[in-house]
Design a protein around this nucleic acid. Sequence first.
RNA 1: GUCCCCAUCGUCUAGAGGCCUAGGACACCUCCCUUUCACGGAGGCGACCGGGGUUCGAAUCCCCGUGGGGACGCCA
Length: 469
Amino acid sequence: MTVRTRFAPSPTGFLHIGGARTALFSWAFAKKHGGQFILRIEDTDVARSTPEAVQAILDGMQWLGLDYDEGPFYQMQRMDRYKQVIQTMLDAGSAYYCYSSKEELEALREQQMANKLKPRYDGKWRPQAGLALPNPPPDVLPVIRFKNPQEGVVAWDDLVKGHIEIANSELDDLIIARADGTPTYNFCVVVDDSDMGITQVIRGDDHVNNTPRQINMLKALAEIDSNIKVPQYAHLSMILGSDGQKLSKRHGAVSVMQYDDDGYLPEAVINYLARLGWSHGDDEVFSKEQFALWFDLDHITPSAAQFNTEKLNWLNAHYIKQADINYLVTDLSQRLNQLNIQVSEQVSLPAAIALYRDRVNTLNELAAGIAYFYQRPVIDALAAEKHLTADIKPIMAQLASALCAIDWQAPAIHHEIEAAVTSNGLKFPKLAMPLRVILTGIAQSPSIDQVMALLGKDEVLARINLAIN
RNA sequence: GUCCCCAUCGUCUAGAGGCCUAGGACACCUCCCUUUCACGGAGGCGACCGGGGUUCGAAUCCCCGUGGGGACGCCA
């Protein structure tokens, strides 16, 4: 049987890091087995779903390079199908109308909680042999509930967590259609996973409790249509924030697109996410394609993982070092523009990137790091105080005039600094440090002769003159 | 409260009863390289939640604690 997996986000917000990992693992599992990966938008919560969120999810998937073979399918466009299935369940007696009002149910819940019981529907409208139902109140629009088995257990062998079983007595009759007729999540999932031929449901840990209900519905459906099969399930544990707390919209969860804004490469984010909860021996650095070849469900950690920005940074630094220079040039032009820095022809952008890329964790750091090639820096006061002392100014002037005459190459520049330094009985850093401060504004930079070579003679002399006069 | 899940260095993890004196990676520390800061190189620090079993032998299997998390919606 061909492997078919799906990613089924609800469009109530952006694609965050946890969702992205779920999508990545589902994607990789399908790729690994030569199957299909399907995108399905679960938008049955009309009140909270937005087209902007749909777009945000699509954007996130695209940025990460998670291509889907089918979809996006929208549940709201499958209403007729859901209603049809609900009708067959009603006809088969595996679903029934329930006239309990929201207020009634709320009171029931509170009472049960007060009695330290698990809150659940009391089965008031559940048809039972030999038992007459109350007369439907005229003012209540009924919901439709699934008639969950009351005896026995539901069990499945979770591909991540192993054997899980839950007594049916723990489950109640869940609502599959609201009073307004729209179907609810657990029901739609079951119909869709079945219709779409999903073979492995790979999803977040928070769905473990939904699984027995879904299996029961699938089994009820299978009695009506023998083609319906229960898929396999793999529940991924969640990703915690750096502080070990649960990520939520209020706490730490950010859009994957934020990583783009912050200067992370999608390769780094993918690689990082792949190693969060999954491993392949001691391998740490690998591409998305390699991941798709290696991925398996056997090496997924069942415990929750904490997000760690340091490691992401390390991977990002690695991928920046490896990146295609043309890609970086395009990216950095945009980032510099956003910083209101015009990339001039005077200084080669590829050369500036090449000189600086080994020193940064993010593309934003890279942009900030090469900014002084394109605009005069603000001189750091502390650095100036330490290195740009009065006694160095005559020597700086001496160097400046010597530099005027030379062929503008790093070795020649180095030679002149060396000459100025030794003729005054000093060491190289004594002049290199103030030069750094003058030219870059701060006391850390790549080799000063290389910085000077790249900056250009006119600009170097201009900045020196500005500083010593 | 009830049900379900989880538990190896600070963090991500390797580990399928003897290969474990518990391995790797990030971070941290030291040294080397060096013109500053990085990069790079070489070292170092650092963990099997506790208690009982099972076994000749347990990080690994079982039970009980403890701690963490999730779920209990006419949300998904």
